[in-house]
C-alpha cells in the first residue's frame, strides 16, 4: 500500500521526477513564460532539433484561457500541470520506460487496462507534428506519447520521444477523486491538509473572469504586435560582422508571448475565423524563424 503522501499531488510529481532522473534526465523547472503545453518549453521545442542527444523532464503549467470554467467544472481548468519528458534520440524501449514510470507511481499494469490508442499530435502554432498515442488507463486518458517528426517545419533527426502526463487527471485517478478541487495536494492529514482547491480555486475563478471578460483586447493586440516585432528583430537583424549575432532564445520568448496573447484574444472572442488562421500563421512564422536561428547557432558563438 502506498502511503498517502506518495499519492498526493506533489507526491506524484516527486515520484515521477525521481524516476526520470534515474533514467538520466536533467530535471528542469517550469519555464517562466505562459505556454499552452509543456512542448513549448525551449527544453523540448528547441532541443528536439539538431543531432545532440538530450534527456530532460520538468513540470510545466499549461495555460489554456478558453478552458477556464470559473472553478465550477470538476475537470476543466484554464491552468493545469503537465509533466513533460523528452528523450532524444527516441530509445527503442520508450514504451517500457513509460510503463515503468506508471509502476513507479504504484500502478500495476497486470491489474489495470492500459492501452496505446492512436492519437497523432500536431501544434499548428509551433509548426510541429508527431505520431503516437494517448495512453488510456482503465479507459481514461492519462498521458500523451509522441514521436516527434517535425518542429518549426524542420525534420527532427534523430526522432525524439515526448511524454506528457496530465498530472491532475493522473492524480484524480490514483486518489479516486471525482473533482479536481478535492485532490489531496500535500498528503498531510488533519489541520495541515491542503487540497487542490485550497491552492487554485480562487485563481481559476479570477483568471476565468480575466480571460473571458476583463482582459483589455486593445492592449492584447498591441502586445502581440510588439512581441512579433521584437521576435523578428532578434532573428532577422543579426549582423555577425558587427558582433551582433541573431538571438534564438530571446526571440523564442517573444514567440511564446505572442502565442499566449493570441490564446487570450481567442478566449475574449474577438477573433473571427479568418483572423484566427492569420494569427496562427503569424505565430508559426515566428516559431519557424526561432527554430532555424536556434539550429544555425548550434555550436556557434554561444
Amino acid at each position: 500500500m502506498k502511503s498517502v503522501a506518495s499519492t498526493s499531488f506533489q507526491g506524484l510529481i516527486l515520484a515521477l521526477q525521481r524516476y526520470w532522473a534515474e533514467q538520466g534526465c536533467v530535471i528542469l523547472q517550469p519555464y517562466d513564460i505562459e505556454v499552452g503545453a509543456g512542448t513549448f518549453h525551449p527544453a523540448t521545442a528547441l532541443r528536439a532539433l539538431g543531432p545532440e542527444p538530450w534527456r530532460a523532464a520538468y513540470v510545466q503549467p499549461s495555460r489554456r484561457p478558453t478552458d477556464g470554467r470559473y472553478g465550477e467544472n470538476p475537470n476543466r481548468l484554464q491552468h493545469y500541470y503537465q509533466l513533460q519528458v523528452i528523450l532524444k534520440p527516441a530509445p527503442a524501449d520508450s514504451q517500457d520506460l513509460y510503463l515503468k514510470s506508471l509502476a513507479a507511481l504504484g500502478i500495476d499494469a497486470s491489474k489495470h487496462d492500459i492501452r496505446f490508442v492512436e492519437d497523432d499530435w500536431e501544434s499548428p502554432t509551433l509548426g510541429a507534428w508527431g505520431l503516437g498515442w494517448e495512453v488510456w488507463l482503465d479507459g481514461m486518458e492519462v498521458s500523451q506519447f509522441t514521436y516527434f517528426q517535425q518542429v518549426g517545419g524542420i525534420e527532427c533527426d534523430p526522432v525524439s520521444t515526448e511524454l506528457t502526463y496530465g498530472l491532475e487527471r493522473l492524480a484524480m485517478y490514483v486518489q479516486g477523486v471525482e473533482n479536481v478541487y478535492d485532490l489531496d495536494f500535500n498528503g498531510v492529514a488533519g489541520a495541515g491538509r491542503i487540497t487542490y482547491g485550497d491552492v487554485f480555486l480562487r485563481a481559476e475563478r479570477e483568471f476565468s473572469a480575466y480571460n473571458f471578460e476583463r482582459a483589455d483586447t486593445a492592449i492584447l493586440v498591441r502586445h502581440f504586435e510588439d512581441a512579433e516585432r521584437e521576435c523578428n528583430a532578434l532573428v532577422n537583424a543579426g549582423d555577425e560582422n558587427a558582433n551582433r549575432p541573431k538571438l534564438a532564445l530571446p526571440a523564442y520568448d517573444q514567440c511564446l508571448k505572442a502565442s499566449h496573447l493570441f490564446n487570450l484574444l481567442d478566449a475574449r472572442g474577438v477573433i473571427s475565423v479568418t483572423e484566427r488562421a492569420a494569427y496562427i500563421g503569424r505565430v508559426r512564422a515566428l516559431a519557424k524563424a526561432c527554430c532555424e536561428t536556434w539550429l544555425a547557432g548550434a555550436g556557434g558563438k554561444f
Binding site: A90, A92, L131, Y147, Q149, P158, V159
Partner: peptide, 12 residues
C-alpha cells in the same frame, strides 16, 4: 513515421 533504429518508415 521515421524512428531511430531504421531507415525504413513504418506506422510506429
Amino acid at each position: 513515421m521515421r524512428f531511430p533504429a531504421a531507415r525504413l518508415s513504418w506506422v510506429r
